[in-house]
């Protein structure tokens, strides 16, 4: 069984939700990314989303654009990402998911990409600019190697598209909380409730909510309705702010546990 699926089954049996932090690999640099991942695991992450930097991240807001730019400047590419993942696989016992725009993957070679994912024990992929329609080029290989393919559903998805995405997704379904790009927001979109109920009617695959989630209250609210919570920009903002602070890792750790704990309250 895929480790992501395993994780959700385990969480479900104890009635808890998954806390899924996102970080940009190579931001602020590759060595720190290693430490950050370990810190996130220690602070209660159930799954970690590793973002591969891209020069033109068109689904991302200013925060992740900036971190991607910095990661590229520090020399990050897919080869380096896999080197890091190779090191992590022996020390991290939670599932890792890779997020990448499609062009770096296409250029790297799809066969080589999937085989490196398998070697590094990365359990799933999110490719924000590869909707199910274009997924044919990669699907066959991903399925064969039991790599979960996580697709996005948005507030404006039609019921026809929800059905398509629900059918093609494995691991979990990534439910986008806002009509827009990534970036920290203070309030949770009220319509998300409705959307999740709509998805539940179609599938019993786990649903995780991301985009715009940045505080305890939002994490708590999402935990009541979804199977997992994804946060990204708020962590990246914090790293930017504390970049030169020697205790950055501890500050990040405390901040993360503080959010993660909201996914572990009894339901």
């Amino acid at each position: 069984m895929n480790r992501i699926t395993e994780k959700f089954e385990k969480l479900k049996s104890i009635k808890k939700r998954a806390f899924i932090p996102y970080i940009t690999v190579g931001f602020p640099d590759l060595n720190l990314t290693y430490d950050i991942v370990l810190k996130l695991v220690e602070s209660g992450a159930d799954i970690i989303e590793l973002g591969v930097p891209f020069s033109d991240p068109l689904a991302d807001g200013p925060t992740i654009q900036k971190s991607s730019q910095k990661a590229l400047e520090s020399g990050t590419n897919l080869i380096k990402v896999f080197e890091l993942a190779e090191k992590l696989k022996n020390v991290v016992n939670i599932p890792l998911v890779l997020m990448s725009y499609y062009n770096p993957i296409y250029r790297y070679g799809i066969g080589r990409f999937i085989s490196d994912l398998t070697n590094c024990q990365i359990s799933g992929i999110i490719i924000p600019d590869l909707p199910p329609e274009e997924y044919g080029e990669i699907k066959h290989l991903a399925d064969e190697h039991d790599i979960a393919t996580i697709f996005l559903i948005a507030p404006n998805s039609t019921s026809e598209r929800i059905r398509l995405v629900a059918k093609e997704s494995s691991g979990f379904i990534y439910c986008v909380s806002v009509t827009g790009i990534t970036g920290a927001k203070n309030e949770l979109n009220k319509e998300i409730n409705l959307l999740i109920r709509q998805i539940r009617l179609i599938t019993n695959k786990p649903i995780c909510v991301g985009f715009g989630i940045s505080n305890k209250k939002q994490v708590m609210e999402v935990s009541k309705i979804a199977d997992g919570v994804i946060v990204g920009s708020c962590l990246i903002n914090l790293i930017f702010k504390e970049e030169s602070n020697p205790s950055m890792l501890n500050i990040l750790g405390n901040y993360t546990s503080d959010l993660a704990i909201e996914t572990k309250v009894n339901l």
């Binding site: 600019d129 329609e133 697709f151 996005l152 404006n156 598209r161």
Partner: peptide, 14 residues
């Protein structure tokens, strides 16, 4: 060609 875009745009393209 094709439609390599975030899911959010798929309804608008259709």
């Amino acid at each position: 060609g094709g439609k390599y875009v975030p899911e959010l745009l798929m309804p608008a393209l259709e």
